[in-house]
Amino acid sequence: MKSSTESTDSLAPGSAKPVAGPGGSSGSGGHVSGTHVGFWGGLMTALLAVLVLAAAFTAPPRSGAYYPGDCIQYP
């Protein structure tokens, strides 16, 4: 039976890839946890909702009681 040092000695230098642990980083970059994606996705969704709501409130009416000029008639 081989020991753990014997099994890694058979690999060529630089061929073994580091493996990231649960909270660690492998150093390769690009690793994003689901928590980060969920946080930023939720934040961007809330920001977009606020912007759309602000645009809806500030848009002038095209017809109705509050329209300042000639109303667009119902077809």
Rank of each mutant, 00 (worst) to 15 (best):
V32W: 02
V50F: 11
A49M: 07
T35S: 09
V50Y: 09
Y66V: 12
Y66N: 15
S33F: 02
P22C: 02
G21E: 14
V19R: 06
D70C: 08
V50M: 15
A16N: 06
A56F: 14
P68W: 01
G14W: 00
Q73V: 11
P60E: 15
T58P: 04
A12V: 09
S25M: 04
L53F: 11
L43Q: 05
D9T: 12
A54G: 03
H31E: 08
A55R: 08
V19N: 03
A49Y: 05
S26Q: 03
P68N: 01
K17C: 06
F57I: 09
S4M: 10
A65K: 06
P13E: 15
G27A: 00
D9I: 07
G64E: 02
Q73Y: 07
G24F: 00
S7V: 15
S3N: 14
G14I: 00
S28K: 07
W40Q: 12
L53T: 12
L53C: 08
G64Q: 03
G24S: 01
Y66D: 15
V19F: 02
G34Q: 05
S15Y: 10
S26V: 07
F39S: 13
L43R: 04
S33A: 02
E6H: 05
T58F: 05
G27C: 00
T35D: 08
L53S: 07
T35W: 00
K17Y: 09
G42M: 03
A16S: 09
S33N: 05
V50P: 10
T5Y: 09
F39G: 06
P18K: 08
H31C: 04
W40C: 10
G34I: 06
P18D: 06
L11M: 13
R62L: 14
G34M: 06
L47W: 12
P22R: 12
T45E: 08
L51V: 14
H31M: 06
P60A: 15
G30K: 01
L48T: 13
S15Q: 11
G34T: 07
G24V: 02
